[in-house]
């Protein structure tokens, strides 16, 4: 289980995240939603070890991740699909996928896992030897997700995976998220597309200017109508 406690993230004098606590269990999809600048990406970056939190703790199955390098955290089974995808444009699709397998605990099954993902994302199979920079945005998003999955993560951090995608692609992304839940992967899903994310997620957290303003299960959130209020106000 991923456990974030009283997390604070600052950039100089800008406080981006102020005291956020959240958990993600295996096989659970958790949504983290909020407006632009709410601190969603900063939260993921802190979990992945890309930014050092000002205070607070992040633990995976009781092991503290604070002060660890991103590569160490990746090898613990936390995989990040960042905002803007960050595929390696000058590397081929196959090379990008290979990099996804670096953090795998079980390297022997990497080839088999790659084949399985290529079957799931046929477009990547077709463009195996094409530089990733030549792919369309939607194709790059598939590549970023497939690459993250190749590490066989216990926890997947998805930052706005549906941003800029055609509706059909958005469906595919949410389908994959649902499959991961079945496989026992914990997914922390950041979305601007809040209503859809909350509808898929088992539980959701709503951030506003770095602070947690609402949290609850799908049922709770759909009942009390606060979510709609938050988004209409």
């Amino acid at each position: 289980m991923l456990e974030v406690r009283d997390l604070h993230v600052s950039y100089g004098s800008i406080a981006a995240v102020k005291g956020l606590s959240l958990t993600v269990s295996p096989g659970e999809v958790v949504a983290l939603v909020g407006a632009n600048g709410a601190g969603k990406s900063s939260t993921l970056a802190a979990i992945a070890g890309v930014v050092a939190p000002a205070s607070g703790s992040v633990e995976l199955d009781g092991v503290a991740l604070g002060g660890r390098t991103p590569e160490w955290i990746a090898r613990q089974g936390i995989s990040l699909v960042p905002e803007g995808r960050d595929v390696f444009a000058s590397l081929t699709v196959a090379e990008n996928l290979h990099l996804g397998t670096i953090a795998r605990a079980d390297r022997d099954s990497a080839a088999e896992a790659t084949d399985r993902l290529l079957a799931r994302f046929p477009v990547l199979d077709r463009y195996r030897d094409t530089p990733a920079g030549k792919l369309s945005g939607g194709e790059q998003q598939q590549l970023a997700i497939a690459r993250a999955l190749l590490s066989a993560p216990g926890i997947l951090l998805l930052d706005e995976p549906s941003l800029g995608l055609a509706p059909k692609m958005v469906d595919l992304v949410f389908e994959v998220v649902a499959e991961l839940r079945e496989e026992g992967v914990g997914v922390l899903l950041v979305e601007q597309n809040a209503l859809r994310a909350v509808a898929v997620a088992d539980r959701s957290y709503v951030l506003r200017r770095g602070e947690l303003v609402l949290a609850g299960t799908r049922e709770e959130l759909s009942q009390d109508g606060q979510l709609a209020d938050l988004y209409l106000s």
């Binding site: 390098t69 590569e71 990040l80 960042p82 390696f88 590397l91 290979h98 990099l99």
Partner: peptide, 24 residues
């Protein structure tokens, strides 16, 4: 080679390479 690919990845985007487990 895998190390070579890791090096090229790091040259393009060091932070993302590390997030994938490439040791800095």
């Amino acid at each position: 080679t895998s190390l070579g690919i890791q090096m090229r990845a790091a040259a393009e985007n060091f932070r993302m390479a590390r997030c994938l487990g490439v040791p800095a």
